[in-house]
């Protein structure tokens, strides 16, 4: 239950962090360490070097870019939960943040750490997919932005190359009338979810996006999922058609048995109810 011996570096700038990444073989980035820590202690991960990026000022900053909020990768879930970061998504970000694991995890766990680990059972992945978040990634050869959907390639697998660093998440500002919903099903509070449903409904632009995730494979995203409602009216969550949703999940390639599909459909349905509840 003790990690292997590793070296530790604490760069103060993004460039210095990238230098370490480029020169040190078998290095791992350490942010809050709430996922990496257990893996280190269990020796599932045995790095030669940990690069602590929590003291790089840019990574713990938040800036308003007008149509989006740029949240530094090392901002903790608790900072969002406590509204120390503006919630420009009508309270949705706070709700999601406050349901992540436990308070003692949220105070250290970070937004960027969660996304770059890309555990399909993690909250931010599904929650931010419906908001069309974009990730800002930087490397020694320049920076790039990539949509979250494209970023996630599979369970625990992302578009991030070993020499790159996720530095910020751009979350588009929600319309005032937008309704977002989130629901996860887990056997014990705070545990990895068995199923997650997330939804974003934007009456102004007509944008409507529904995401379902399980504990194992990358989330399935439905754009314009009106056909999953028997009356074609998403404003009436009761008309959500469960059997049709299960079929849609199956068709989308979700490899799960009937029970698992049903739990995911239930999570979607409850996310709809969450979004539409006053």
């Amino acid at each position: 239950m003790k990690p292997v011996a590793f070296e530790y570096e604490r760069p103060r700038t993004i460039d210095a962090a990238l230098e370490h990444l480029a020169t040190a073989p078998n290095a791992k980035i350490l942010a809050g360490g709430q996922t990496l820590g257990p893996m280190l202690n269990l020796r599932l991960v045995q790095p030669d070097l940990l690069i602590d990026i929590t003291r790089i000022p840019e990574l713990v900053s938040v800036s308003d870019e007008g149509d989006a909020l740029k949240i530094g990768a090392c901002v903790t879930h608790a900072s969002i939960e406590d509204a120390r970061v503006e919630d420009h998504a009508n309270g949705y970000l706070r709700r999601v943040a406050s349901g992540i694991a436990y308070r003692a995890v949220r105070t250290r766990g970070t937004l960027g750490g969660s996304l770059s680990h890309a555990d399909p059972a993690a909250d931010w992945l599904s929650a931010l997919l419906v908001l069309k978040a974009e990730l800002e990634i930087t490397g020694l050869h320049g920076s790039r932005r990539v949509g979250l959907k494209k970023f996630v390639r599979g369970a625990m697998e992302t578009d991030l190359s070993p020499e790159e660093l996720l530095i910020a998440v751009h979350v588009p500002r929600s319309e005032k009338t937008a309704r977002h919903g989130y629901y996860k099903i887990c056997r014990k509070t705070g545990e990895f979810a068995d199923a997650i449903g997330a939804v974003s409904f934007n009456p102004g632009s007509g944008g409507f996006c529904l995401v379902a995730a399980g504990g194992s494979e990358q989330p399935v995203t439905f754009e314009s999922p009106e056909n999953l409602f028997s009356q074609g009216d998403p404003l009436d969550p009761d008309s959500f058609d469960m059997p049709m949703a299960m079929d849609a999940l199956r068709e989308a390639g979700m490899e799960a048995d009937d029970y698992e599909l049903q739990v995911r459909a239930v999570a979607m349905s409850r996310a709809m109810q969450d979004a539409m509840s006053p």
Binding site: L30, G33, Q34, L40, N41, D52, A78, A104, R108
Partner: peptide
């Protein structure tokens, strides 16, 4: 803030 000291390294 509360934290879990078993997965927080002293050096951090």
């Amino acid at each position: 803030e509360i934290a879990r000291s078993c997965i927080t390294y002293a050096v951090t």
